[in-house]
Design a protein around this nucleic acid. Structure first.
Lengths: 112, 112
DNA sequence: TTCTTCTATCGGTCCAAGACGATGAATACC
DNA sequence: GGTATTCATCGTCTTGGACCGATAGAAGAA
């Protein structure tokens, strides 16, 4: 049910834990598939290019977006597969919390 | 659909973005409703009491847990209502990202 | 009252994150 | 070739997070 270890979940949550990065995801979603380059994102945000690039890197490292080099520019797109995977892990987390099984935390404890 | 503003979502995600805090939520879930005090949590984790107390405070501030003072000890429990609310917001976020509506980001931009 | 237990908070240290400007590499264009 | 554009990365600075020990206050026990 919950296919991702806690460290991975925490990584993704931390990547999502910044309003600017949520905005970037929305921008990528609004612009459609694989046709949104870094400049497009920068023009939607009141931040320096280097800052936006750094936020995108965080999303890349978390596996939430993917990069498609296109000539002199880099296009970004959401990773639908990963979003689905994270959605499943999230459901598992919520289910596990609201319908707890006594043995569950013991297993979790062993992992960390 | 998505009932929480991005800042709130980011706050919750940040609170969830640490393995220890995920562990604390699981501990609270495993111990059942409103009968888990701070010491119980501390004994499950290899951290100092002050550190655990601080993590719990983050979860409190994010609205993920609630405190029930009981004599000399404080009991904590998950806030099921808030978990449901956040689950709904998460679903809305994922849905919005995977089935984007062009006007969506414009509305989002206005908020921040 | 005095002692113990529980736990929030304070002060301090250390490291990571967020923001910026500057630089440099890659590609496209003239 | 030379120039412009795009963008990742580097160095720096500031802020915030994570962790700890110490402290203090509240409630129960002796």
């Amino acid at each position: 049910m919950n296919t991702l270890p806690d460290d991975d979940i925490a990584n993704v949550m931390r990547a999502l834990g910044h309003p600017v990065r949520l905005s970037i995801l929305r921008i990528l979603a609004a612009q459609g598939a694989s046709d949104c380059c870094c400049t497009d994102v920068i023009q939607c945000l009141p931040l320096a290019q280097s800052t936006v690039s750094q936020h995108i890197k965080v999303l890349l490292d978390a596996g939430l977006v993917e990069r498609h080099p296109k000539g002199t520019r880099n296009c970004y797109a959401l990773r639908g597969d990963r979003l689905a995977e994270i959605g499943a892990a999230w459901s598992g987390l919520i289910t596990g919390l609201t319908n707890p099984q006594p043995a569950q935390y013991a297993a979790q404890k062993e992992l960390s």
